[in-house]
Design a protein around this nucleic acid. Structure first.
Lengths: 254, 254
DNA sequence: ACGCCCGTCTGATCCATGTCAGGCTGGCTT
DNA sequence: AAGCCAGCCTGACATGGATCAGACGGGCGT
């Protein structure tokens, strides 16, 4: 069990308190436990070493701090090593809305490519760490390593597909379906990372969930209660248990 | 004025009727009027010729026909030459929802990269033509031509950003704001292509608009009427006029 | 030119979710 | 240990949009 796994299980990172959020630590895809989930999946030893040279630093972000904000110059993309982030977009009238939650092994910052400026804000929901991947170098390494290029494209495409799914959800599903779909999505992603699929802790508030799902926090709360009454989930504050995953999946298809 | 421009202005393509939808015609980015809007923007002569060799064929899609459907094997992406498409995603319960409209110079099919299978369906809303861009060859040319690689990444990123914007819209805006934002978006894209920003024809039905915006067709209809009463737009069937663009933009920020 | 039908508009009603308000709990600070 | 406050839950009420129903009009095919 590696250093990273331990931290991902919830150990607080106290040594960064009082220091600036940005730190420069060595990163290494070749020895990263998330490697198969991340950009470096499926690459051979030699290519991994090349990536290691590019992904030269990590950065720690304390809970509540922003990794980047709207308008920031785009230079790098980020891979979450441990912790959890939310990304939020800006409405025309200034309100913010959560557009996604990123957990270990997922990328942040791809939105900045299109015009060299970030158009959303990424905030850590708990003490977190990311690998900093300078994008220009990533592109040039992609030119040398087709498999890496392929991975990048796959990740970008996957992100588009996920956004589309959420779109469809917001466009045509009811509150209970939205929430159920959200929980199932979290469940799957936990499972991918080797954690329990049917029991987990929500790291985000009801406000953030509501913002993400296009609902008010009150409705989120009520809907949790309703799903519990229907026996589909068990809720205790931030603790969620899904006693019957197939049943919940089935509920979505109504 | 080229052949393409003439067709884009609305001349019906009659010669394809009764034939299979797939046709093999020469394509040429180097002489395409959409070149600056599309993937080949900013490239030099030599690189353009390289692209021309890859983007070797076009395909005509009659109104109502699908360019690709959910589950189809992914091999190519497509650039719209003229015409208009809608993409629709599949709900868990089988219902379909429109997730986007693509006009000349925009790309289709990027959703298929992530697992080599299309996860949405692209349907022509009028007789249309696309350039077929084999993706494997596109990737390999991207390795040789950094500017092309950059363009591809930019386009993908832009698509992600647009999806996010729509997400925010669906998550927190009222019917009138959604519709206004939709019209402004169309207006901008028309302007980019050299057409009037304040007057245009809607090529999609109220149903399709409603599906896209997460509203019923009845609400779309009513909301058009409401916006007209408020003097923000003039509607006559599919004909839209926006007498005061800044006023409509201002309306969004409420 | 005629008639059919799809797409659109409008009205009446209902329901899901937003809004406003109050009270509870658990975790953090002092 | 006490107190405070953010986050959460629940209730009562308001409302925007969905739903159901019907009428109109224009485009298309015969």
């Amino acid at each position: 069990m590696s250093h990273i796994d331990t931290q991902f299980h919830g150990v607080r990172i106290t040594e960064s308190q009082g220091r600036p959020a940005q730190q420069h630590l060595p990163a290494a895809c070749s020895s990263c436990s998330l490697h198969e989930l991340c950009l470096s999946g499926g690459l051979d030893e030699i290519d991994l070493e090349a990536i290691d040279r590019i992904v030269a630093q990590r950065r720690r972000i304390a809970k509540g701090e922003a990794l980047f904000s709207v308008g920031d110059a785009f230079r790098s993309i980020y891979a979450v090593r441990f912790g959890l982030f939310k990304t939020e977009g800006l409405m025309t009238d200034g309100r913010e809305q959560v557009t996604g939650f990123q957990m270990a092994g997922e990328l942040l910052g791809l939105d900045g490519i299109s015009d060299d400026r970030h158009v959303c804000k990424a905030v850590a929901l708990e003490d977190s760490e990311v690998c900093v991947i300078p994008f220009a170098e990533m592109e040039s390494l992609g030119r040398a390593v087709p498999a890496l290029q392929r991975n990048l494209h796959r990740v970008m495409s996957r992100e588009m597909v996920q956004d589309r799914n959420l779109l469809v959800l917001l466009g045509s599903a009811q509150a209970a379906e939205r929430l159920a779909a959200f929980l199932l999505n979290l469940s799957e992603r936990h499972a991918q990372r080797g954690y329990a699929a049917s029991e987990f802790i929500l790291r985000m508030t009801r406000d953030e969930i509501g913002s993400y799902l296009g609902l008010t926090p009150e409705t989120v709360s009520r809907t949790f209660t309703k799903l519990q009454k229907d026996g589909l989930i068990e809720v205790a504050q931030k603790h969620i248990r899904i006693p019957d995953l197939p049943a919940l999946r089935n509920f979505i298809g109504c």
